[in-house]
Write a protein that binds this DNA or RNA. Structure first.
Lengths: 146, 146
DNA sequence: GCTTGTTGTAATTTCAATAGTTACATCGAC
DNA sequence: GTCGATGTAACTATTGAAATTACAACAAGC
């Protein structure tokens, strides 16, 4: 099981917006071309990012702007906006274990705190990285190219 | 996107084996009843755990035994045995971004180290918990019940 | 006000993975 | 050889991701 590509696509979108905002009008067609996918896929992701309050999208005329500074948007903000995780739980249980079995009726309570700690560790690391890291990281990579 | 229930089912299996090994013969039917699923599902998971070298399964007569001490099997060992993650990468990219776009051709290099750090944080936390924690944890829960 | 380019979104298709189920060959102990 | 168990193939149902087509809604410029 892997986390869907929508997450990395969303980070790709943010990087493009920041990189090209002064050169081009960054539309869903433009983004689809850079990512090599369909514009509708991009628009669906933009809708999710907008619902999460991370961006504003200009209807009719087109164009994307961030609602906060690059340094104020973390990978976790993007992940949370994009991944439709049920109840916020990363790990899934088999529903309805046997209540007559001492293990079956306690398995949830037994595992919950440990699984939560694992999920927390992952999310805490996600909060360490911001979109500003993407700008500076890309700058370095482009300088190496030259 | 959530991690499949096979992982928590595998932990459930280990807990049952440890809890009932002296009282009952722990078969795939027995386990299926506690977890409330199909015996074949259990056998498939047992096959994965066996392939990873965590258990031995007695054919014909039935029965499961661990190949190591409880304290020597971590949640990560189980996760690794169960989850068929491609190349070991938790995060998926959109394949074939546009190489003519400065962002498209660098997005992988830009994100790889950060995504790896996130995955590492999760896996490191998984290595902190062992099957022994499940034994002691269940013992406490059962004492509370009484 | 009409044209143009864009976003928003519904509907559909394809593909892959999870989970469940039936069936049966294989095995080991008695 | 019988019995109870595992190993595994084959099939189905369900779900979600991703792609695609189509079109309504919108905003700006002429």
């Amino acid at each position: 099981m892997q986390i869907s590509s929508r997450f990395t696509v969303a980070l790709h979108i943010f990087t493009c917006v920041d990189t090209f905002k002064n050169e081009y009008k960054v539309t869903s067609d433009f983004l689809a071309s850079s990512i090599n996918t369909n514009p509708v896929i991009i628009r669906k992701i933009l809708t999710q990012l907008k619902s999460a309050g991370l961006i504003n999208v200009a209807r009719g005329t087109g164009g994307i702007e961030l609602t906060r500074d690059l340094s104020e948007i973390t990978f976790f903000d993007v992940y949370e906006a994009i991944e439709p995780v049920e109840d916020g739980d990363l790990f899934r249980f088999h529903e309805a274990p046997n209540p007559d079995c001492p293990v079956g009726r306690n398995i949830h309570a037994l595992l919950d705190d440990k699984l939560k700690a694992i999920q927390d560790a992952m999310e805490a690391e996600m909060k360490k990285y911001t979109l500003l890291d993407l700008r500076t990281g890309l700058k370095e990579l482009l300088e190496k190219e030259a």
